[in-house]
Design a protein around this nucleic acid. Structure first.
Length: 929
RNA sequence: GCCGGAGUGGCGUAAUGGUAGCCGCGCGCGACUCAAAAUCGCGUCUCGCAAGAGGUGAGAGUUCGAGUCUCUCCUCCGGCACCA
């Protein structure tokens, strides 16, 4: 037998391509659509971290194919957008050429890894045959009123020279280049994703197979908040101002009102001279506009603002005249851009009110507290509680519980009161240092705060308790019940009872609130909202800014016609490009650098821009903005089902067959970008009956990053990149694949380690050498391990636990190492290894004279009967401690095991009575004495 | 601050409530060899000569039995955040 040499890999890759082993079949009852997030073909090529997800889907889809599923496992290129364009500009090549070159390089690299993609379904978002349908979807959105033009100030990246959506920001900076973004008013196309906010949120419940953290990210991003909109009236002009609040119950505590600097009413006050300090106000507004979002919302930033002199507003609940301010802590784009100030019950309002000396009016009491009680809990022996007892005995007895309390002295916090009471009542037999922890527990009694204190290292007999009034007996059960539901002690203390330097932001009982006094916050919230306004739900999710002032994107298929605008002003002169004229192709140009003027470079190409209006046939101009990078990826999963279709984005029948994607694998960083956009478009397509499913991706798993050996991110910048080509050349693709799947749990971020990778290579060499011992007849001694391995590997691949699948195969090979292996047993093993190491498996399959390709062979089934070993080792415990083991025939009955166990454990039982005997079949026997 | 996830050898990690550390890396010893590499075998949580005892971030609880379940605390990672 020759030594294992990975040069066989090329041979088999050619064979698979020639025999079309991985070609997708559209017809089969069982289907499995396995999808990778397609890459941007960047100029840097792949590093070893990139293919991890692709290898995983490859392993998965190979198993599914062998299990008789028709498998769709395609690949394509997301090649529009800023990264590709910036790369092209930097390297002074046309983006088209750069993309073609990079795609070629990526494809080469992926092919070397031996991935089972059906390349006949390859797609590219920059292909006019593809983006025709991206444009078509835009037209449908436009038709339904879900695409509109807006002139609001948007995020502008000064370096990329384009407008950006909220999703393109990271900490207020451009996600691509890290520049601080500015706010710029400009015309832009916007998609009304907010119309889908509620469904995007609720339908997360239709996705039980998504990881919780991804769903949680989306929930946070959508940011639903239920509250009320309440109208305030300006006393001078009778204008109405609406505010949004989640705490309508605090309305009686509103002592001022704040407008965001961008609020339209400010202009009105200034123009109409209502406001007497308009110069200063305008100055403040201009200052605010100059600042970036980051500067304005910086952590710990001191609050700023300016009073609108001469303008007063009426609190609808109290009828009081209250002052108005402009302050940048009110955000223009959230709620109504106006905030009611409740300093007594909101942290931000509190600091603002302190700075501007505004009244702080408390209208919610946490609850009325006048007394303080203490439960004394002394830890004596484990599990035993000893408590202070009744007044007439005045000493500590085990198993009972006592209670004492006292009045709060003025200026004292409850915590201080509790401590003082303990010291006083125990006549100082407990010292302050003995008290390990004193914390508050929920109390049934409305006017008592109840505390538990833990006393340790003190002999209970030495505790003397003062005889006093107010001693109440509780049962042990009651006291323990209190402790079980206790909330985080110290926090509660601090928040509720320390000096009143903080606003009370919690809920409670209303006071000083007219007819609503004595109601709880929850009750009052609805009632007050209904009386003075309306219930209202707000979202943090913003509409999707959809235009980019850049060249390399899908042209937005719209024509602007002045004549049509005059005839029908509400249509703004927007004429959609007729569907038959799609695609609107991106013109080939020499100059494609961004202009920075807010105009796309396309605007300068007169030949392309000037067109006949499709409606009135007059002179008109094309829309010159292009779509953002996320457009193509919002629906590409559908195109793979039917990539060549010229009549529709996907054939209905094929869509119904393949939809939805059964397994989707990619980076977690897309949780609030691509994955929200794709869900939005898919739902829209569902609404217009273009697709049959409500959700595009049934199961979503995110890849854990592979970090560089130094633990940092793998990047050219740090010079720590490991290139897969080098690894494959030296060790082979199969080694790379096995190692990446073996590194650890798939979703964990783990550092690359070339040394550890060599272990994967050694494993494959060990497998290779098993061939020397293959014989005709199966070896019964290996039956159990082989069946166990088939079972575990099948289940582990299904659950994406590749590391333990490989571990099990290693155990199996170690077991085979000094034994003869039967032909059938060997073929089963080669079959389950095949998804991980397809080349070596194919070679060994071939040597073992397997039929056809191993990758089309049936997946082995395990024999449940053979899983059971003849003899089992049973652990013998005495009182839960492992003492020894016995070997018994498997499935022995309890009595037999008991007799053996008691005999062997005699030494530890020492003639004591056996109180209980616990037997876990084939595993463990515990003798309780 | 709110929400989610995680803390286990020198390292990556493994354990339906049932022998903690499988598998791999590294390290040590041995076999083969003139020698080295490769390979194979044995060992490798801590204390102890051993019998044994202790040990999964800390503390408590439930249980015959807890890495796993409950509570409190600490640390790290991720999302959101002047969002009213």
């Amino acid at each position: 037998m020759k030594k294992y040499n990975h040069s066989i890999e090329k041979k088999w890759q050619k064979y698979w391509a020639k025999k079309k082993v991985y070609q997708t079949k559209d017809t089969c009852k069982k289907k499995s659509y396995v999808l990778d997030m397609f890459p941007y073909p960047s100029g840097e090529g792949l590093h070893v971290g990139h293919p991890k997800g692709y290898i995983a889907t490859d392993v998965y889809s190979r198993m599914k194919r062998m299990q008789g599923y028709s498998v769709l496992h395609p690949m394509g290129w997301d090649a529009f957008g800023l990264p590709a364009e910036n790369y092209a500009i930097k390297n002074k090549v046309h983006p088209r050429k750069a993309v073609d070159k990079n795609v070629k390089r990526f494809k080469e690299q992926l092919s070397m890894i031996g991935l089972d993609y059906d390349w006949s379904r390859e797609i590219n978002t920059t292909d006019p045959a593809f983006y025709k349908w991206t444009q078509w979807i835009f037209l449908q959105l436009l038709k339904k009123g879900l695409a509109y033009q807006s002139y609001e100030p948007i995020n502008w990246c000064p370096s990329c020279q384009t407008g950006l959506a909220n999703e393109d920001l990271e900490d207020g900076k451009c996600e691509r280049c890290g520049s601080v973004v500015e706010k710029r008013p400009m015309r832009q196309w916007v998609l009304k994703i907010t119309d889908y906010a509620e469904r995007l949120l609720n339908d997360l419940e239709l996705l039980p197979h998504w990881q919780e953290h991804i769903k949680e990210s989306q929930r946070n991003w959508i940011g639903k908040s239920e509250g009320a909109e309440i109208s305030f009236t300006i006393s001078e002009t009778q204008d109405e101002i609406k505010v949004f609040t989640t705490r309508a119950d605090t309305l009686f505590g509103v002592t001022y009102l704040v407008l965001a600097p961008e609020h339209p009413l400010i202009h009105q006050f200034c123009a109409s001279q209502t406001c007497t300090n308009r110069k200063q106000v305008e100055e403040y507004v201009n200052e605010a506009k100059k600042k970036s979002e980051i500067e304005r919302t910086a952590k710990g930033k001191e609050k700023t603002g300016i009073k609108l002199e001469g303008v007063w507003v009426i609190n609808p609940a109290t009828g009081e005249k209250i002052p108005m301010f402009v302050a940048d802590y009110a955000l223009a784009h959230y709620g109504t851009g106006a905030v009611m100030g409740v300093p007594a019950h909101d942290e931000r309002d509190f600091t603002f009110a302190r700075k501007f000396a505004l009244p702080i009016k408390s209208v919610v009491a946490p609850r009325k507290i006048t007394h303080c009680g203490v439960l004394l809990e002394v830890k004596n022996k484990p599990g035993t509680f000893i408590f202070q007892l009744r007044s007439d005995e005045a000493r500590v007895l085990p198993g009972k519980i006592g209670f004492f309390g006292g009045n709060l002295e003025s200026g004292e916090t409850l915590y201080e009161c509790a401590t003082r009471e303990i010291l006083e009542e125990t006549e100082l037999s407990i010292k302050k240092d003995d008290m390990r922890e004193t914390f508050m527990v929920p109390s049934e009694s409305p006017d008592y705060a109840l505390f538990v204190t833990r006393i340790q290292d003190v002999d209970p007999a030495n505790i003397v308790v003062h005889e006093g009034k107010g001693l109440i007996e509780l049962t042990v059960e009651e006291a323990l019940a209190h402790e079980k539901v206790s909330a985080g002690a110290k926090d509660v203390l601090r928040r509720y009872f320390s000096a009143q330097a903080e606003p009370n932001t919690g809920e409670g009982v209303l006071e000083d609130s007219g007819e609503f006094s004595q109601l709880t916050s929850a009750e009052a919230r609805t009632k007050i909202a209904q009386k003075y306004g309306t219930l209202k739900t707000t979202y943090k999710l913003r509409d999707w800014v959809f235009s980019r002032q850049r060249y390399w994107g899908e042209p937005i298929p719209v024509i602007h016609c002045e004549k049509c605008a005059l005839e029908n002003p509400s249509g703004q002169g927007v004429v959609p490009v007729p569907e038959k004229d799609l695609p609107v192709k991106l013109p080939e140009v020499k100059k494609y650098e961004p202009t920075g003027t807010g105009e796309s470079p396309l605007a300068a190409i007169e030949k392309w821009v000037n067109v006949k209006c499709p409606k009135c046939k007059g002179k008109a101009k094309r829309e010159t903005n292009t779509m953002p990078q996320w457009a193509g990826s919002s629906w590409y999963h559908l195109r793979y089902m039917d990539p060549k279709n010229k009549k529709a984005l996907v054939d209905k029948k094929k869509e119904k067959h393949w939809s939805p994607v059964d397994l989707y694998v990619g980076g977690a960083e897309h949780a609030t970008r691509h994955l929200i956009y794709a869900r939005f478009w898919h739902k829209f397509l569902y609404d217009i009956k273009a697709v049959a499913s409500q959700e595009p991706f049934t199961r979503l798993i995110s890849v854990g990053l592979i970090q560089a050996e130094d633990g940092r991110k793998m990047s050219k910048r740090f010079g720590n990149v490991i290139n897969p080509d080098d690894i494959i050349k030296t060790y082979g693709a199969d080694t790379l694949r096995v190692y990446e799947m073996f590194m650890g749990p798939f979703t964990d971020a783990i550092a690359w380690n070339t040394n550890a990778m060599i272990g994967a290579r050694r494993f494959l060499e060990r497998v290779w050498r098993v061939q020397e011992r293959v014989v005709k007849k199966d070896n019964p001694a290996l039956d159990a391990i082989i069946n166990k391995t088939i079972k575990k590997v099948s289940e582990d691949i299904e659950n994406f636990k590749f590391n333990t699948a490989i571990s099990q195969m290693m155990v199996c090979v170690n077991e085979m190492s000094d034994k003869e292996v039967g032909q059938k047993q060997w073929k089963s093993f080669v079959s389950i290894l095949a998804p991980f190491a397809p080349h070596i498996a194919e070679e060994m399959w071939n040597i073992a004279q397997g039929k056809g390709s191993v990758h089309l062979a049936p997946w082995p089934k395990y024999d449940a009967k053979k899983l059971v070993e003849e003899f089992v080792t049973i652990v013998v415990q005495v009182n839960g401690k492992v003492r020894t083991q016995i070997t018994m025939p498997s499935e022995s009955d309890e009595m037999a095991v008991r007799i053996e166990a008691v005999k062997i454990a005699e030494k530890w039982i020492e003639g004591k009575d056996i109180r209980r005997f616990i037997y876990v079949p084939n595993k463990l026997a515990n003798i309780v004495i």
